[in-house]
Write a protein that binds this DNA or RNA. Structure first.
Lengths: 94, 94
DNA sequence: TTATAATATTCCATTTTTGGAATATTGTCA
DNA sequence: TGACAATATTCCAAAAATGGAATATTATAA
């Protein structure tokens, strides 16, 4: 069923349709980070960051790795860079 | 202000976060289409299609051209093809 | 075993999105 | 003008997203 694929893609875009989550992805593009680093960098409440990370993970955009008390998150999809570059160009035009 | 850019990008992703709108974009990748063609192809109510098109246009993802009674829509951003291909690969893995 | 640091979860009110149904607008042609 | 075809708009109830606040969980180390 092709419509099912559209639903799955829509889910991915929905996960990306939030400024905080985009900022997280942008930061993760720099490499794996633990939650505390993300909280420190982005200046949002820890629960907010945590919920954002979980949503991104559920959608399959990032993955996590536990090490002691820390949880490290990293990007799972590598094709976003080009797309983001394109979006930047588009947004510059306006 | 960088956070403003994240908001704008989030808006774009929000516009893409709906199966019907994705299906429209997929169809438009084939070239310019008038509303009636889209309605016929996608099998949704005309007002629904119309609202979807307007949302995509507001976000700057598509543009329109009027000719008599018809309104023709076409893609305005060309970098979606690669990104969609990547998403397809990601979705196949699951 | 207790305290603490790191992270996750729950609860909740507010806002936003969704999609159906009815209706309005606009352009064309007889 | 009047009828009709193509498209847009409005209204609305249900569903989903948002983000703050409080709280829970988990692992570690003393």
């Amino acid at each position: 069923m092709k419509s099912n694929l559209y639903k799955k893609k829509a889910q991915i875009f929905k996960a990306l349709s939030n400024p905080v989550r985009l900022e997280i992805i942008d930061f993760l593009a720099d490499g794996e980070k633990c939650v505390c680093e993300i909280v420190e960098k982005l200046n949002y409440e820890q629960p907010h960051i945590s919920k954002s990370l979980i949503k991104l993970k559920e959608t399959g955009l990032i993955k996590d790795r536990k090490e002691g008390l820390n949880v490290y998150y990293s990007l799972k999809i590598c094709c976003m860079g080009e797309f983001f570059n394109c979006l930047n160009k588009v947004l510059e035009i306006d």
